[in-house]
Design a protein around this nucleic acid. Structure first.
Length: 259
DNA sequence: ATGTCGGCAAAATGCCGA
């Protein structure tokens, strides 16, 4: 069973790339981020025609997450939005069950510029995620928290091509990294890290300055697995070629294969 | 500071978010 996450950076303009990737990669479950479209304008018919059921939490102009399940898979929504702040209007969290597993599509706030209110929001949102994740990690069912975490875990080459040029970015700040470590410490496994530690496996390449052709990337899309999911983990990878196509997202699909 | 995108308000570009 293949489970993937893909920050599409606008599902409307990315629809050809998304449908093409679904057709060739055939993930059983795909979590999408940055839909950048309202609930009413989500391309439901096109997704269904590709063989997927979907639930989505849209927002006009930015954010937005979705869970897609191939051939239905008994897709059922469990939660939209994180608990802990009724005033939070951002569409960044969608939790569902399908194909016998629980998945959450996560779009963690970017947090730039830092310091500032956007960085404070990032850390507050992260704290709410950690609080909620504590209730999921001990599940006897496989659980996967997957998406764009907007965190580069370390300065190592496995995580970023050149940390120095991103030193002041919100993605590399000690507070962002500490929150990510606290989440992992609950008992989650970072799948790419577990199977490919130290290797430069990036998931995002900025549109600026020809970063993809230089492989000047960052690993910020993460798949976190609880123990029952970890026990079934066989492969993990990134569909890099998708980033090199016409009118691509700045992220590539990132995935795991479970038994 | 800069570079490039997607999407918005609004009708061409300028702004925001990334």
């Amino acid at each position: 069973m293949k489970i993937a996450t893909f920050n599409v950076n606008g599902i409307t303009s990315r629809l050809p790339r998304l449908l093409e990737w679904l057709e060739e990669a055939k993930p059983d479950i795909a979590c999408l981020q940055e839909l950048k479209t309202s609930d009413e304008t989500f391309p439901r018919l096109e997704i269904e025609a590709a063989g997927y059921s979907a639930i989505w939490h849209g927002q006009k102009g930015f954010n937005g997450v979705a869970v897609l399940a191939r051939d239905g898979g008994g897709l059922a929504e469990r939660r939209r939005g994180l608990p802990g702040d009724p005033d939070d209007t951002h569409s960044r969290y969608l939790e569902a069950s399908a194909h016998g597993v629980i998945v959450a599509a996560i779009y963690l706030p970017n947090g730039n510029p830092q310091p500032g209110p956007k960085f404070a929001y990032k850390l507050a949102w992260f704290a709410r995620l950690i609080e909620h994740a504590a209730s999921l990690v001990a599940s006897s069912e496989p659980v996967l928290l997957i998406g764009d975490y907007n965190v580069v875990a370390t300065d190592g080459k496995g995580d970023i091509y050149n940390a120095a040029s991103w030193k002041k970015d919100a993605l590399l700040q000690p507070e962002s990294r500490e929150a990510y470590r606290r989440l992992l410490a609950q008992g989650w496994t970072d799948a790419i890290h577990a199977l490919h530690e130290g290797k430069p496996i990036y998931t995002f390449w900025d549109y600026f300055r020809d970063r993809f052709s230089r492989d000047a990337g960052l690993r910020i899309d993460h798949l976190l697995l609880n123990a029952p999911a970890r026990a079934r983990l066989r492969e993990a990878g990134v569909d890099r070629a998708v980033r090199g196509r016409e009118k691509p997202s700045d992220h590539a699909p990132t995935w795991v294969v479970l038994d």
